[in-house]
Design a protein around this nucleic acid. Structure first.
Length: 480
DNA sequence: TGAAATGTTGGGGCG
DNA sequence: ACGCCCCAACATTTC
């Protein structure tokens, strides 16, 4: 009898799970294990992510039970938990899929070395990427800092990307007497009713992830290139949290897309190409954070190390709570708070507003998103915020400053998004709802809006703050 | 995956 | 009839 542990981390699924497949093929007993432990003190698991994790673990546990296995839950330092289990149940092997975030890379290599010293067979497998981060290089053998050439190489090398695996037909039983914590012991659900609305928008779990992908591929993907820009429409896949927790892998997303739409998904004129390209941005984020592990808290562009960010806790709080006086910003921030998610177009707008107009550090934005997004992902979040702030990989040019009013006119043409999330101004006509502060008094009165009372006055002047940002970014750029 | 400023063009009003 | 001006519409440049 040989027993193996499969250490589940951010790969909460049974299909395309290399570690699980290997363990099931080689061992008579398999302990599917999840260890709850915040190993990155500077980026603790956010509240919204905890909510997702709770439900995703429930789903994985149910799936394993259907295979007559059992998910074992533990709390504490992974090495201690593993060592104890190994000793108690005569475990001979430990398998996991790799995670490329900096703290995990470091901890995993230590755990691997320690267990191997103790004669345990430890094997790790490719994680949730198309290519290992070290397998993709530019002509000089360096990591990429620009998306387009990076993605070109990824696509060219796709034949070397491992194909997705099916679920193991049979999961060997978990040995008798392995004790597990109760899911509720992990204390993942918020004490207040904050997350109550999340479940109206998301159902965590592997089965739902695949359902959502299939539905998206058969209904929406053709118009994705256009429709994805309109936050009021269901034009995006909303797969991000499922991908973050590994309920579905990027290999599966790509394979399913190609299966339904053929190889032409790589040609530019197809909606599916835009969609696959977003999977590419996810891959790029993992690549950049792996090779530049400081970029979750320091700018990739060193000229921004000394940047004079403003400090203004009142403005930060107004931004966080959706009380800036600019409806598209407030709508986005409230969508985030209420649903645990924000449309990507609006993420760009609120990020530009925080960094350029308010002049507050992108780190504040990254921290808030990390805590409140169900899809919070250290790699994607860091890349996205540095991109918006103009200090990261393939960053937006310093002069690219979104105007909230123009963005509303373009991407929320009938103002449905604003009306949904900023109901106190919903009665304003289309022409004024995007800038209530300029609306004539009789229009405001007729709509029941009292500026400064029922809806805030703008906390910053757009033109003034834009000019200030242009000067600062231009100066930062010319340093060194 | 930007916005604003500046430049150019052409139609129409008007002396 | 003609030149001049205004200005919208569009294009280009600049930040």
């Amino acid at each position: 009898m040989s027993t193996a542990i499969v250490w589940f981390r951010r790969d909460l699924r049974l299909t395309d799970h290399r570690a699980l497949k290997e363990a099931c093929a080689k061992h008579d007993c398999v302990i599917p294990l999840f260890i709850h432990h915040d190993d990155d003190s500077s980026w603790p698991l956010g509240g919204a992510s905890q909510w997702w994790l709770h439900h995703s673990l429930k789903s994985l546990s149910d799936s394993l039970q259907a295979k007559r296995s059992q998910l074992i839950l533990a709390v504490g330092e992974p090495l201690k938990v593993l060592t104890q289990l190994i000793a108690d149940h005569n475990v001979s092997a430990v398998y996991w899929n790799r995670d490329y975030t900096p703290v995990r890379v470091k901890n995993d290599s230590e755990i691997k070395a320690t267990l191997r010293r103790n004669q345990i067979d430890v094997e790790s497998f490719i994680g949730d990427v198309l290519h290992e981060p070290w397998a993709i290089q530019n002509g000089q053998g360096n990591p990429f800092k620009v998306f387009t050439p990076f993605w070109r190489v990824c696509v060219r090398e796709l034949s070397n990307s491992p194909p997705p695996l099916s679920a193991p037909r049979h999961v060997p039983p978990c040995p008798k007497g392995v004790s597990s914590r109760k899911l509720n012991d992990l204390m993942l659900l918020p004490k207040l009713a904050w997350a109550d609305q999340f479940e109206d928008h998301f159902i965590p779990g592997e089965e739902q992830a695949h359902k959502k992908l299939k539905k998206f591929l058969s209904n929406s993907v053709r118009d994705y290139g256009e429709r994805r820009n309109f936050p009021d429409q269901l034009g995006t896949s909303k797969l991000s949290p499922h991908l973050h927790f590994g309920e579905i892998s990027p290999r599966q997303v790509l394979a399913e897309t190609v299966k339904q739409h053929g190889e032409e998904v790589f040609q530019k004129e197809y909606g599916a190409e835009n969609f696959i390209r977003e999977v590419g941005w996810r891959e790029f984020a993992i690549h950049v954070l792996y090779h530049f592990p400081h970029t979750h808290s320091k700018p990739l562009d060193e000229r921004f190390n000394q940047f004079a960010w403003r400090k203004d806790s009142k403005a930060l709080r107004a931004w966080q709570r959706g009380q800036t006086g600019y409806p598209i910003i407030d709508a986005g921030m409230r969508e985030l708070w209420q649903t645990g998610w924000m449309h990507n177009r609006v993420r760009m707008i609120v990020a530009s507003f925080l960094t350029k107009n308010l002049g507050l550090s992108w780190l504040h934005g990254a921290q808030w998103f990390h805590d409140t997004l169900v899809d919070a992902d250290l790699a994607a979040n860091s890349l996205g915020w540095q991109w918006a702030a103009g200090c990261g990989a393939d960053a937006a040019p310093y002069y690219r400053i979104f105007n909230p009013i123009l963005q509303t006119e373009r991407f929320d043409p009938d103002r449905a998004y604003i009306r949904r999330f900023v109901p106190e101004i919903a009665q304003l006509p289309d022409a004024w709802i995007l800038k209530p502060y300029e609306a004539p008094t009789d229009v405001l009165k007729a709509a029941g809006v009292s500026l400064g009372k029922t809806y805030p006055l703008p906390i910053v002047d757009l033109k003034e703050s834009r000019d200030r940002a242009l000067g600062l970014w231009k100066a930062a750029r010319s340093e060194q």
